[in-house]
Design a binder for these strands. Structure first.
Length: 469
DNA sequence: CTGGGGAAGGGGCCC
DNA sequence: AGGGCCCCTTCCCCA
């Protein structure tokens, strides 16, 4: 018989005991303020306390004590409330510090909730729109924990979250995500690359198991107001994995790789997507700045991070273990976490994190920038070949390949300096053609315009266009 | 199933 | 600080 509310009542009882100072055997001092709690509860909730209490587990006759100066009493109050209630009172003002403190205390649950709060506040989590990992402030019933729930629903409502975050703060209740197998159903299409940070950072940014001993910790006072290290798991699934880990893994918490990456972002790669989400075509520079402004409170500044790098100061990413020498590089790096892609390709709708990437893409894909024949791969010049306009895509073919493909008789209305425009695929001879990942986009765009490169109305994107051309 | 090539993403660093 | 270049890695597609 499963009595589902048992654990809730048990937690309520423990919270009552804490508030009445019953059986509290752990005293935590933060900014001179003493908090009392149960070591069993702290042990089960925090990797930091697990490590701390493991070392002192023999002597249980005296209360365990701990003192923190790296976060505020208010922050610890919020965290302790979460430990005993499952509800995390987050607001735009405290989320960064709470996350930093949770990082310090190795409380992945809290970190995950904070990450979700930040992501939803930034309105950058495209996947949330698909209801894959949705946030809803409407839910207050299923888990009984409050106004904010990280669940698996479809009623994503970023506006609500914004309001809650900005105006009133809100209570975050954490629902554990479904098994990883559910994540494998994420809607990456055949031609949709997984978010890069999911792929690359699985190896690069989560390099080694992080042991407490290897963490370079700098007291708050030495910084600009935040903790030095921020250990963040790339994916919430790590929570589950960690939950099943034996205690020794908690002592030396291991950052697990994720099967499919976290919930960070997906983005439109086709004009259809770009059209369906008009706001996507607006560069979100302000959001990067928004997050960037928050950086000082969560940045870590480290020295001597590696033996190879003895530079005195490094900037620590709050979302992963990556450090950089320059703040500007950190700002650039943050885009791989925020999902921000301020540079849209106006030809195909694909978005990029950097202007140079957009430029490379545009030159390669839409301007036939490579002076090689796409068919025979041999070098081709203006004299020995032509530019083919295939939908939004341009490439070069040498005269021989043009002849062999039967394309030398197609549409010579333009001058030699103009691209040879291929007819739509359904009208094209089936001799051969080049398949590529923009074929579908092309067919749609052809219906809308004969122009290979569509202009965009957005003025900011016009600026981008002017930079490209 | 595998290897090669193209495209994209990210880091380091110079200007 | 931002732009840009170079290099490397990763992923995907295709033969």
């Amino acid at each position: 018989m499963d009595f589902s509310s048992h654990h809730t009542r048990l937690l309520q009882q423990l919270d009552e005991q804490r508030k009445r100072d019953l059986f509290c055997d752990c005293h935590i001092t933060v900014e001179g303020q003493t908090f009392k709690a149960h070591r069993n509860v702290l042990f089960a909730s925090s990797g930091y306390f697990k490590m701390l209490l493991s070392q002192n587990c023999k002597d249980v006759s005296k209360p365990a004590t701990a003192t923190f100066d790296v976060f505020s009493a208010d922050t610890f109050t919020a965290i302790l409330d979460f430990v005993y209630s499952g509800k995390l009172p987050l607001s735009g003002q405290n989320v960064i510090e709470v996350m930093s403190a949770a990082s310090y205390l190795q409380m992945t649950d809290v970190i995950s909730v904070c990450k979700m709060f930040i992501k939803s506040s930034l309105d950058i989590n495209e996947k949330d729109r698909d209801g894959f990992f949705s946030l809803s402030d409407k839910d207050n019933g299923s888990n009984g924990t409050g106004l904010y729930a990280a669940g698996w629903r479809t009623e994503y409502s970023p506006s609500h979250i914004h309001e809650a975050a900005e105006h009133s703060g809100f209570i975050a209740g954490y629902n554990y995500p479904p098994p990883i197998t559910s994540r494998l159903q994420r809607p990456f299409t055949k031609h949709t690359r997984k978010p890069e940070h999911v792929r690359k950072h699985r190896k690069r940014l989560m390099p080694d198991p992080i042991t407490p001993a290897c963490i370079t910790s700098v007291p708050l006072g030495d910084l600009v107001g935040g903790t030095a290290e921020c250990i963040v798991h790339e994916d919430d699934s790590t929570l589950q994995e960690e939950d099943s880990q034996p205690p020794e893994d908690m002592v030396c918490p291991k950052v697990e790789e994720d099967e499919e990456g976290d919930t960070a972002q997906s983005w439109p790669e086709s004009p259809q997507h770009a059209e369906s989400g008009e706001q996507d075509s607006i560069p979100r520079v302000s959001k990067a700045d928004e997050l960037y402004k928050a950086m000082p409170t969560i940045l870590g500044v480290m020295s001597g991070w590696t033996e190879d790098d003895l530079s005195p100061v490094r900037f620590k990413c709050p979302f992963c273990t990556h450090t950089v020498k320059r703040k500007a590089d950190l700002k650039r790096h943050l885009r791989c976490h925020t999902g921000e892609r301020p540079y849209p390709c106006e030809a195909c709708g694909k978005r990029f994190t950097r202007l140079e990437h957009l430029r490379n893409h545009f030159q390669t894909i839409h301007e036939a920038g490579k002076l090689i024949c796409r068919r025979c791969k041999l070098p081709v010049t203006e004299l020995t070949g032509r530019v083919i306009q295939d939908g939004t895509r341009r490439y070069r073919l040498c005269h021989q390949c043009l002849s062999e493909a039967g394309l030398d008789s197609v549409n010579f209305d333009f001058g030699d300096d103009q691209p040879l425009v291929l007819p739509p695929e359904n009208e094209r001879e089936q001799a051969w053609h080049f398949k590529d990942d923009v074929k579908d986009e092309n067919s749609k765009e052809r219906q809308e315009s004969d122009l290979p490169i569509q202009g965009v109305e957005d003025s900011e994107e016009e600026d981008v266009k002017s930079q490209i051309t």
